[in-house]
């Protein structure tokens, strides 16, 4: 991958709303809601066990002090787990009617969407933070190249953020959490699969390039290789921005139904 000059990322309006004081309590309550239910603990437990098991199963065979394999399977794990994080976020509000109170508080719809996204991202970051035991143990076994590890974690946050934005949007379309989970999983799988190697390789070259650009995984593997290309970062930020925008539109759609 050739390295482009790092461009300055334009400030998207959503980031400016971070400084808004009244999104902070919503963010706090959303994050708290994860830990108020057993889902958070089940999620973190499954995430750590599955991730560690899949990784260490082959780690000693490969005889390399590297986390490449871990980041290789991470998109697959995310595929199942991020819809589990996002499924209840809007669906539950709609189901129980709390949406009505939330959206009549003096906050803009976009701020609520942002607060919910940031809370889910924080939750994912906490889960990822707990996997730091892996690089620590790997580093103790041999000299490890730190670049790909740092890249891998940055990529994981970006990839996870993209899945979360997509999942949140889907959750805002339905009252049913199960529907939100299954559709979220399907949607994440779709954006994942169109860029996967075994799909793009089977296509004529030019089409493969397009598919791998729109697919979500190729960008992740670039970053996880330790190459932080601004194009990949912009891809994820655009992806996240687009689905958050759709999410705001979906929330506003209460007006036409």
């Amino acid at each position: 991958m050739d390295n482009e000059k790092t461009q300055t990322i334009p400030t998207i309006p959503a980031i400016r709303t971070l400084r808004h004081s009244n999104i902070k309590p919503i963010y706090k309550r959303e994050l708290g809601a994860y830990f108020n239910s057993p889902i958070a603990y089940i999620f973190i437990g499954v995430f750590l066990v599955v991730g560690n098991w899949l990784f260490f199963q082959n780690f000693f065979l490969s005889n390399q002090a590297s986390m490449r394999m871990y980041f290789g399977i991470l998109p697959w794990i995310f595929l199942f787990l991020t819809p589990a994080i996002t499924m209840r976020v809007w669906a539950e509000e709609k189901q129980s009617g709390t949406e009505e109170l939330l959206l009549t508080l003096p906050v803009r719809d976009a701020d609520v969407v942002m607060a919910k996204f940031l809370a889910s991202l924080t939750f994912l970051a906490i889960s990822l933070g707990l996997t730091l035991s892996i690089p620590i143990s790997v580093a103790s076994l041999g000299s490890m190249d730190l670049g790909p590890v740092i890249g891998g974690y940055i990529g994981a946050i970006l990839l996870g953020g993209a899945y979360l934005a997509l999942g949140l949007f889907i959750s805002s379309l339905t009252k049913n959490q199960i529907v939100a989970f299954i559709l979220g999983l399907a949607a994440c799988f779709l954006v994942f699969i169109i860029g996967a190697d075994f799909v793009t390789n089977s296509m004529p070259g030019w089409l493969g390039v397009i598919f791998s650009f729109f697919g979500i995984s190729s960008h992740f593997y670039n970053i996880a290789r330790g190459v932080l290309d601004s194009r990949d970062v912009i891809y994820y930020l655009t992806f996240i921005g687009f689905f958050l925008w759709l999410n705001v539109k979906a929330v506003e759609s209460r007006n036409w139904r």
Partner: peptide
């Protein structure tokens, strides 16, 4: 919205809080 206090019909509250 700042001037208004609202109680919707079904009293939707966050049950987990």
């Amino acid at each position: 919205r700042k001037k208004i206090g609202y109680l919707p019909e079904s009293v939707p509250l966050y049950d987990d809080m």
